[in-house]
């Protein structure tokens, strides 16, 4: 090999960069977040269901919250009719956080895990916990 030293150095840097997720990942993988629904309000519910089914909420809650905000702030409409026919008051603090009163053990769990940085609490008051 000609200029072997420089080429090998470059290759080692390349392979090191490519392998870095594996190097950092070794022995990891057990920290899958488990958002807690262990709050007094949810415990008291007969049927533990959110506004929409859990699977829908998992992927669509960000869109729903955004739609709620637009509906409330721009159109002044606060009534949400869920797909199962139940009606809810569109409100992050009064509806969502009433049941999920444990932000750090519920919202933050997944958001921190995947590095999502929602801007809910730029405007809303961060709920006080353990009250």
């Amino acid at each position: 090999m000609y200029n072997g030293g420089k080429i090998l150095l470059g290759l080692i840097i390349f392979i090191g960069l490519m392998a870095s997720p594996f190097i950092f990942g070794l022995g990891k993988g057990d920290a899958k977040p488990t958002p807690s629904i262990d709050t007094p309000e949810i415990k008291a519910m007969a049927k533990k269901q959110c506004v929409e089914p859990k699977e829908v909420m998992k992927t669509e809650h960000m869109k729903m919250l955004n739609d709620w905000r637009d509906s409330v702030v721009r159109d002044g409409k606060r009534l949400y009719k869920a797909t199962d026919g139940k009606e809810y008051n569109m409100s992050l603090q009064n509806t969502c956080m009433k049941c999920h009163s444990n932000k750090t053990k519920f919202c933050d769990k997944c958001h921190t895990y995947v590095g999502a940085q929602p801007y809910c609490w730029d405007c809303h008051l961060t709920p006080k916990e353990g009250v």
């Binding site: 997720p21 990942g25 070794l26 990891k28 993988g29 899958k32 977040p33 669509e60 869109k63 995947v114």
Partner: peptide, 19 residues
């Protein structure tokens, strides 16, 4: 067509931790 990103990350971490 959103997927459950938490499950996706857990799956990817499983790949890079060789599990």
């Amino acid at each position: 067509i959103r997927v459950d990103i938490t499950a996706a990350k857990a799956f990817v971490i499983g790949l890079v931790s060789l599990k």
